[in-house]
Computed example of a mutant assay.
Amino acid sequence: MEKIKLPKELYDKLELGETKQIEVTDLSNDSFKIRAIDRNRTERAATWFLLPTAISTLLFILSLHFFGKSSVIPLTGTDSIASGVMVISNAVAMISFIVSYLMRRKELSHQMTSKVYWRTIITVIIAVLLLVTLVLSAFFWFISQIFYGVAFDTITSVLIFAIFTGILSFFLLFVVDVFEISMLLNLLIMVAIGGLLSSMVSNGNQYWWQRNFSVLGTNNSNASWQFNLTLILSAALMISLFDYIFVSLRMKVGFQIRHVILQLLLTLCAICIAFVGLIPNNGLGLAHLAHDIFAQLIVLFMGLAILGIRWFLPHIEKNFYYLSYAIVAILALSYFLWHPIYYLTLTAFEILSFSVCFAWIMLLINSLLRIIWEEKKVYQVEIITAEEDTKNK
């Protein structure tokens, strides 16, 4: 086996012992990835997904017997295969996800501190649960449109249920196996975009856009819980990400008051987003007033963060400054096109503002993660000759 020399700091960072090996992957013209091989680590998805599948299938059979469904079972609808997967399989798979995620806490300590791990665990679990529920709802809705009214006998129904359950259980355990802190960012994107699109599609009123964006979270919408829960969960994911990022940033560059102020502004913005979801804009009264105040505070805190980005992060890429100021110009222009001259509707202004601000937050998080993770250092290269390799053996 070929050998490689590593500086002591890299050797310690990879936690290599005398008998451990490293793996070099992603070879390209000028870069590659290096990681320690942990022979004790097991991929739980490939070995353990059968257990939650078997438990869910047994519970499904018992529920069929309990509710007297012994002849024909529909694929979708009430008391169907789809409802069994949504309730039984989803619950059992999520329990297996939680147990597996807790078992991986030591491995995840390389990416986040123990404090950050316990702060984010509830948010991760709820985000995964919501995302899986939304995906299953969309999937079975699509299936119901293709196979309208289809039903199966008991044995076939149990087999189809077991297949769906096996796929779901394997997927959730696979997510645990490959989980990294960057997945919180992907969860935020999928929950925010997926939840909002789902609310638009299933709200029950094709002309909702004639009023405003917030109508999706009111009593006038059939999907108000999806819209409001999406806002609350997106806010929780944002707070978790900001907490991890700025704690890691302080560990790397030390305490700086400008970073604390930026974290405070971004966290307050996320809290206001959560309150917009917690207090639907149902008509007049205190709820309407509070909803509008929190919505306006989002604009205030986000505007201060964007306008002051050069002071908050003086060593970030200059292109990010130009992009931030361009976003401020777009927001100012869209506001002018909406309120004084009414070229844009309120809904168009809200969607445009949300889109550019959300994109700015994603870019900011990516830029901060690069500062934390991409530690660059130059080393002198030394080639181990065949004679040296033989002598060391």
Rank of each mutant, 00 (worst) to 15 (best):
L304R: 00
L108S: 06
G277C: 01
L129I: 02
S324H: 08
I34T: 11
N392E: 14
L346D: 10
F161E: 06
N228E: 04
T113N: 13
V132C: 11
L75S: 00
N282G: 05
Y343W: 15
D38N: 14
H65L: 14
K8A: 10
L289S: 11
S157A: 15
V72H: 08
K5T: 10
A290K: 06
K8I: 12
L136D: 01
E387D: 12
R250T: 11
V381P: 05
W118T: 09
L364S: 04
Q296P: 00
G254Q: 04
I371Y: 07
D153S: 07
G166D: 04
D12W: 00
C357E: 11
S31R: 14
T267Y: 01
T165E: 08
F354M: 08
G285A: 02
L233W: 01
P7E: 09
T133C: 04
F312V: 00
A151R: 11
A93L: 01
P74E: 08
A192R: 03
G285H: 02
Y322R: 13
Y379H: 11
V176Q: 05
L131Y: 08
N219H: 08
N222G: 15
Y117S: 07
I4Y: 03
I316K: 09
T76N: 04
N219A: 09
R119F: 14
A326R: 06
L286D: 10
L265E: 06
M103H: 09
Y325L: 03
H65W: 10
N90P: 00
I122N: 07
V276E: 07
I98T: 09
E375K: 13
I4W: 02
Y11S: 12
V215F: 11
H339V: 09
Y117D: 04
I189C: 04
D243I: 04
F170Y: 15
L304Y: 05
V128A: 04
F320C: 01
F255T: 09
I37L: 14
N220W: 09
W225A: 13
F213C: 01
I55Q: 02
I125L: 10
E382V: 13
L197E: 03
Y11Q: 10
Y379E: 08
V175M: 14
L337M: 12
F60D: 04
T120S: 15
Y207F: 13
H110I: 11
N222H: 05
S202K: 09
F320L: 15
G285Q: 02
S234A: 03
S114K: 13
E180R: 15
F294W: 13
I239T: 03
T133I: 03
Y11L: 11
Y343N: 06
I371C: 02
F152D: 02
F171T: 15
V176L: 04
E317W: 05
G68Q: 00
N186T: 12
S144M: 04
G17L: 02
V178M: 09
A305G: 12
A386P: 03
L197G: 13
S83L: 09
V299Y: 14
N219G: 15
L249A: 07
L344R: 08
V381L: 13
G194P: 01
N90F: 13
V328A: 10
I341D: 06
S199Q: 00
V201H: 06
G68P: 00
A305Q: 06
S214M: 10
V247E: 15
N212K: 08
A270H: 04
I125A: 12
